[in-house]
């Protein structure tokens, strides 16, 4: 009997712990000033961003969290579209690796896309985007995979010979250490020579919409 009571006590303890943890899980706008201090957003920008987050996170399930379907829906206005990059960006936003985005993850990731964000943050993010296997370098095979996938998504058609030739030339230029891969330093040098590679890393909307 005593053992049984002890078991019930332990179970209650575990349940209370779980509830407590769940309550502490930050979902919404807890303290805009902390986020404003730790990102490039102003307090009013954080508040405006939260309104956007609420809209996106309630599109499919109104739970104050963004799942992949809601993420795709917000980006493309359809959840049917296949996009390697949308998947990749979602995974990079999802720093807790639990398949959903809370407001803090969303705001911290979007902060990199702010016009005032440091260039190095944009370079790092774009590097991670292309480093599909997260090995700390971009392999030729990853580049080929991305080229083929994005061409297929867009309906553009290039022969394998042309694709191979473009990738050869890219590595001739970027892979200055001649080890068959592009590391972060080589990526940084390539991006500085071709600033257009960071074009999608800046969203003017974050300044215009969030302050209006």
């Amino acid at each position: 009997m005593l053992q049984c009571l002890e078991g019930v006590k332990q179970l209650c303890g575990v349940l209370l712990k779980c509830c407590d943890l769940d309550l502490k899980q930050p979902k919404g706008l807890e303290d805009p000033e902390i986020l404003a201090r730790e990102t490039v957003f102003s307090v009013s920008e954080v508040e405006a961003l939260y309104e956007l987050f609420k809209k996106i996170s309630s599109a499919v399930i109104d739970d104050g969290l963004i799942n992949k379907e809601e993420f795709q829906l917000a980006l493309f206005k359809t959840n049917k579209k296949e996009s390697l990059f949308a998947d990749r960006v979602f995974d990079l936003f999802d720093t807790k690796h639990n398949g959903i985005l809370g407001f803090e993850e969303f705001a911290r990731a979007l902060s990199v896309f702010h016009p005032n964000a440091p260039l190095d943050e944009k370079i790092d993010f774009s590097f991670q985007l292309y480093d599909l296997k997260q090995q700390g370098f971009i392999e030729r095979q990853e580049v080929k995979q991305m080229v083929v996938a994005t061409l297929a998504e867009s309906g553009m058609n290039l022969s394998d010979e042309v694709i191979e030739s473009i990738i050869d030339k890219t590595f001739e230029e970027a892979d200055t250490k001649h080890d068959g891969k592009i590391d972060k330093e080589e990526w940084r040098n390539l991006v500085l020579r071709h600033p257009s590679l960071l074009k999608n890393m800046t969203l003017q909307y974050l300044k215009v919409k969030c302050t209006s």
């Binding site: 956007l52 980006l75 996009s83 990059f85 580049v143 080229v147 994005t150 257009s196 999608n200 909307y205």
Partner: peptide, 27 residues
Amino acid sequence: DKNSHQINAFQLIGMASSLDLSGFFED
């Protein structure tokens, strides 16, 4: 095809990819 050889693979990915996060802000 000659012109396509002058762009690098990442520029090509950028052109072909539909990824543009501005979709978040458009109704």
